[in-house]
Design a protein around this nucleic acid. Sequence first.
DNA 1: TTCGCCTGTCACATGCCTGTAACACACACA
DNA 2: TGTGTGTGTTACAGGCATGTGACAGGCGAA
Lengths: 229, 229
Amino acid sequence: MASPKLLLVEDDISLAELLEYRFTKEGYRVRSTPDGDEALEMAEEDAPDLVILDWMIEGTSGIEVCRRLRRAKGTEHVPIIMLTAREAEDDRIRGLDTGADDYITKPFSPRELLARVSAVLRRVRPALAGETIQVGDMKLDPVAHRVEREGKELKLGPTEYRLLAFFMEHPRRVFSRAQLLDAVWGTGSEIEERTVDVHIRRLRKAIEAGGAPDPIRTVRSAGYALEPV
Amino acid sequence: MASPKLLLVEDDISLAELLEYRFTKEGYRVRSTPDGDEALEMAEEDAPDLVILDWMIEGTSGIEVCRRLRRAKGTEHVPIIMLTAREAEDDRIRGLDTGADDYITKPFSPRELLARVSAVLRRVRPALAGETIQVGDMKLDPVAHRVEREGKELKLGPTEYRLLAFFMEHPRRVFSRAQLLDAVWGTGSEIEERTVDVHIRRLRKAIEAGGAPDPIRTVRSAGYALEPV
DNA sequence: TTCGCCTGTCACATGCCTGTAACACACACA
DNA sequence: TGTGTGTGTTACAGGCATGTGACAGGCGAA
């Protein structure tokens, strides 16, 4: 979790290799392909946390890949950063319209792109960017994969951790069971909604272990929310 | 509640797809059809929060669809945004005359349309746009699913919440029991109108809990309205 | 392999919410 | 003041949403 999965779509091989090396060194897991269709397949089989997409690639164009990612189940909300060849204003606007979250015009330095990636991830998935999140008396360290409450580490199972991390990324906000299934179990999972209740129950039990109050609010006929305590 | 339901009526398939994923990405729930009659059916079975309607579609024309939506029960007040092909002044005027809330002339960028949709929704259904609503001394936060009065949280049941949210979206306006049933219970619900009275009573009780005055006005033989206090 | 942890589902308990009916009360009109 | 219509209020039975404990299967570690 603490090493975001990137998908790099770039047909300039030497640039791709450079970026791959650089990002890997920074702790990202990178998968790379020069081909649009292959990128879509890769994204489908294992949804990345962020896509870096060259506007001008052979075969299926960047903008088309962008569109299909947005339409495909499981990748609708994956942030996309576009690489555009020129400063053509058209391209910029069309790129963002198509659903890209940010763009960067060539030539750029790897460091610049690193900054963009980090910025976008921080905005969309703070925990993924390696930032610790604090909500009330709970502190989540995504790098160490730990959650503390009142200085004591919480003992959480994998699902409980993902569920709590998601809540902590969006405190106070009410999520329906369906939304939680999408976010925590992955889009398209065919799990009973009641299962969410059970995991909420387990999460509550784990969080309250030290006798602290229950920060999870049940909103009848709507869902659950995490309240800072 | 925080994801408005759109109905898109557009027979240019590629444009429809573009808009569909763009809006989906922004968190809207989109249903789409190229056919006017089908659009009417879809609107009837599950009333959308906003309709995006192409002026020139095959079969039943856009203007006719617009008229029928306005006449049909359950969709009288659903905002409509018209897509017009040319800048022909005629079209614009007739479109607005017919009951459209806004129009946009092709070609337009998805971003432009997004802005219009967001603007219209904010005007007509603020809570759906995720905005907190303030009416008098009451504040409603649709994301957190909470209502405060004088800083204290109100304890509301699900129906009371929906009822109050609806009132707060249209302060001062008088609604008949039938209108409230449509808006809060959903189109086609077969509930006794007197039931509304009971829920009004419950809502009043919950709102007045702190001893504050009753903001709900009874309009004899007409309905109820929420007055800012 | 065995063991232990994690997971998804079920069944049951519980408490809240809901729609309706019935009665009391207020208002308009004669 | 009487009458009828419309609204306020209460009580209640049933339904529905959620809480909770148990269980069997899966999976990985040892």
